[in-house]
Structure formats: C-alpha cells, structure tokens
Write a protein that binds this DNA or RNA. Structure first.
Lengths: 161, 161
DNA sequence: TATTGTTATACTCTATAACTATA
DNA sequence: TATAGTTATAGAGTATAACAATA
C-alpha cells in the first residue's frame, strides 16, 4: 500500500471528485430528453462513424454483445435505427441511423448545448476563459482514455455529434 | 428561454462533445470496483457531508425518494451504511457511512486516482497546468448545476419536442 | 470449429403512484 | 393536512450462460 507518488496529488484528488460529481449531474440532464444515455451514446456513435455490425458497436460502446442486441432492438422499435443483413455474410446485422434518429440526435445536441450555455453564462468571464483554455488538454485526456480502452479500433472519433 | 446566440459557440459545442465522451469513458472505468456508480456516488456524498436523511440524500443526488430508499436498503444490506431513526422526529431516517463503507470508498478512490494519474501523466506539463487552472471554474460549474436542479426540481423542463 | 447474433435469466437502477406512519 | 419514508409496479440497462444459424 505504499502510496506511490502522484504527479500532482492535489490536482488528481480534486479532479477525481469533480468528475464523479460531473457524471452524476450529466446523467440527470441527459435523462431530460426522453432518450436514455445508452441510446444517445450508441446513436451518436452510429451517426458519427457510419453503420456498424452489432458486435462492433458493442465493442466500441464498451458493452456486451447481448446488451447491444437489446439496445438495438429498443432503438429499432422506436424508429431510430434500421437493421439490415448484408448479402455477403448472413450472420451479420448492420445497424444504421434513420432520418428520425438523426433528428432526435440533433434535438438532443441542441438541448445539451443550451443547457451548458446557461451554465457557462452563470460563470464569470475568467472562469469561462479558464475552461476554454483547458479544453484542448481535456480533449487529449479523453482521447488517451479512448486509446487505453478501445485498443486498436477507434481513434478516429471526431464525433461532432 | 430561447437564446438565439450562444455566449461562446465554439466553447459550448466542444465542451458538450467533450463531456459526452467523458461520461462514456468514466462509465466503464467506474464499473471496475465491484461497487456500482450509484452506490459510489451516494456513499461518497455521505462520507463527505456527514449523515443525511433519505429525502435530503435523494435531493442532493438528484434521484427520487423511492430510488434512494432502495439504494440505501442495498447499501445497508452490504454493510456500507447504517440507518437510524432520531428521537425528535420518528418519521425520519438518518443514513451514515459505516467503517466498512469508508474502507470501500477509500479503495475505490485510490483506484480512480491511480487511473486518472496515469492519464494525467500522459499529458504534457502545460496541459496539466491548464487543467489545474480550470479546476475551480469547473467546480463552480458543477455546483451551479446542483443549485439549478435542487431548486426547482424537474418542473421547469425544457420542451423537448 | 469458429463467428455472429439471439434468447434466457438475473440483477441493478430508476420513476410514478399508492400507501403507512408520524407530525 | 403535511411530511418522511416505504411498497408496488413497470421499465431500461446490464452481464453471463446457453443457444441457433451461418461461415
């Protein structure tokens, strides 16, 4: 249990707490839109990086194959995605976003942006500047997390969603 | 209600995307500890801000009262928290962290910190400095979200389609 | 045999509505 | 009546194990 030295103990501790709270808050915000976080995430991925097979989608989303099967089933029943079996390999199922799915995605994005804008307006100019200044660093941080978990598969996520 | 212009369009858009990806990543990280995100969040809150009544805890955690009742029941059955009815008002139930709960919290925290430290080490010194510099602003942002949601509950939802 | 996907089962987590107990 | 908490019910979301269909 020897406490190996941290690069910056204060930063890391506060950052950890911050992220915990942030996740908590964003979850409730996300729930507002009538579309669940899981659906939003998968739909966003499909919209950004084109059609996926179920197994691929499960992998990049970090869930099990059965979980993705069910998630896709729910999304399909709501008209957000379409399933299609390709000619080549009849075991596979390709999942793609429908027009309705794209509409929903866009609405959600607009809502989130409006919400964040409200929050950011509540801060002082210096606070906003500090966040803007840290944005590239935070983006690199997230990309790093992606690489760690996604292995070799999806570093190309400029998900502008 | 309908802001035709955003305070800082680039900041808000990138920030929104960043948070979406961040949540996605942290969800899988959180699962590592054998303790669920909901339990971790509530337990952490109890450990930081002392005993809470069920209703208070539900409010600050942003979930319904029944959800918190059940969450507390699960945590109690695992020995993480203790429930106690005070003398004054026998309707109330105060929830507090047990020693075992604190142990679990500490282990989880250590794991998360190690993970984040790894990530932060992967950045340059300037990136770390930028994040450290933005921490107070981000903390204020999260606190604001708390106030917004704790105040009016969910009556003031934005129309979403 | 290996793969792709599904079904079966069980658990966590959540919300709303209806309820009990206390104030 | 009002408040604190619980129970009832329903549904989303998840995982592991077992299965079917295709390769």
């Amino acid at each position: 249990m020897s406490p190996e030295r941290l690069a910056d103990p204060v930063l890391v501790g506060r950052f950890s707490t911050l992220l915990e709270q942030l996740v908590r808050r964003l979850r409730t915000i996300s729930a507002v839109g009538g579309i669940s976080p899981s659906v939003a995430s998968a739909l966003s991925r499909l919209g950004a990086d084109g059609p996926f097979r179920v197994t691929e989608l499960a992998r990049v989303e970090g869930v099990s194959q059965p979980a993705m099967t069910q998630l896709v089933a729910r999304m399909e029943s709501e008209g957000l995605v379409a399933r299609e079996t390709p000619e080549g390999d009849r075991r596979s199922v390709f999942v793609s976003v429908t027009d309705r799915g794209r509409d929903v995605l866009e609405q959600r994005r607009a809502r989130r942006i409006a919400f964040l804008d409200d929050l950011l307006r509540g801060l002082g100019r210096e606070d906003r500047a500090a966040i803007a200044n840290a944005l590239p660093a935070l983006e690199r941080l997230v990309d790093q997390g992606l690489v760690d978990q996604g292995k070799a598969g999806q570093q190309d996520d400029e998900a502008e969603n």
